[in-house]
């Protein structure tokens, strides 16, 4: 169970206050714990993976996991249809998911934040054009467009990251825009503007740092979104390419064995679920902790 609202402490230094909120937020703690584990697994993959994730052994294909009859400790989670060790692929898959999520979020964050800050700061016509772009982007069916482009261009790791990066910037733009609008008329921005500070410096040094908290929350949500979408694309065969151990691809390859070897889809799916859950819990937690009254 996850706890929702934090009791409001009174009269404490901001840092201690924050720390107390963090400690009291079960979701944040669970999320951080899950993410730490997955990050550690990804970082230490070469040391903890029992086998080379790409080493195939066709004669050993579809070896069952340890809990099924015929399972051995050599392949704790069994082997896939090319006889590759499932546990090792799972471990390296964590690297891949995290990398794709981070890279796609970086691209979409740059695009979205840039557009949002410009729209919020300048307002007027510029704002109208950017709002139009956001609306247009929102009305494009993401999965369909991503699939079509990947199918026609030929999918690869780079293309998947680019597609996701160029499709998932909308929430960054919306949040950055409204946050910038609020800041635009604040005292220190006005003061900086009067002091003859060039606009770009104002945007970078005054606006950006102050909307950072909100953007971090969006970034976690979008990272989770990107990871799920990558998995979905790979599941449909239009994401990253074999032999890369994408979890989505592993589920897709296991689909042919749905009725007979369901563990082939259970294992990578559970890993994917845990990762996205961890990221979401962390994002929700950061939002609750940094802006406890901030609604939604």
């Amino acid at each position: 169970m996850i706890q929702h609202v934090i009791d409001e402490p009174i009269q404490m230094s901001p840092r201690r206050l924050l720390w107390r909120r963090v400690r009291g937020h079960a979701g944040l703690l669970i999320g951080s714990a899950i993410l730490t584990v997955i990050l550690a697994v990804a970082a230490l993959a070469p040391f903890i993976a029992p086998h080379d994730p790409y080493h195939q052994d066709l004669l050993n294909r579809l070896a069952p996991p340890i809990w099924q009859t015929g399972g051995t400790w050599t392949h704790i989670l069994g082997a896939d249809q090319l006889g590759r060790d499932y546990l090792s692929r799972l471990i390296y898959g964590a690297q891949l998911s995290l990398f794709i999520g981070a890279a796609a979020t970086l691209i979409s964050g740059l695009i979205g934040t840039g557009l949002g800050v410009i729209a919020g700061y300048f307002g007027g016509r510029i704002d109208m054009v950017i709002m139009f772009l956001i609306t247009a982007r929102l009305s494009m069916p993401v999965v369909l467009v991503a699939l079509a482009v990947a199918a026609l261009l030929g999918s690869s790791l780079t293309i998947v990251i680019l597609i996701l990066g160029f499709l998932l910037w909308d929430r960054f733009a919306v949040v950055a825009r409204s946050a910038t609008m609020q800041l635009r008329s604040s005292d220190y921005v006005l003061a900086a503007r009067c002091a003859g500070c060039p606009t770009w410096r104002l945007l970078v040094s005054e606006i950006l740092p102050n909307i950072g908290d909100a953007l971090i929350v969006v970034a976690t949500l979008e990272m989770a979104h990107a990871i799920l979408l990558e998995a979905a694309l790979s599941f449909l065969g239009m994401g990253v390419q074999p032999p890369l151990p994408s979890w989505g691809l592993m589920i897709s390859e296991g689909r042919d064995f749905l009725f007979f070897e369901p563990w082939l889809i259970m294992i990578p799916g559970a890993a994917l679920f845990a990762l996205v859950l961890g990221i979401n819990l962390l994002g929700d937690g950061v939002r609750d902790v940094t802006a406890p009254d901030g609604g939604a």
Binding site: Q56, L82, G154, S155, G237, Q241, P242, P243
Partner: peptide
């Protein structure tokens, strides 16, 4: 295709699958 790539990997060739 993947199986063939596995064999190529084993002799040092690094195929990049374009499906």
């Amino acid at each position: 295709a993947e199986a063939m790539m596995g064999y190529l990997n084993a002799v040092g060739i690094r195929p990049n699958l374009v499906y």
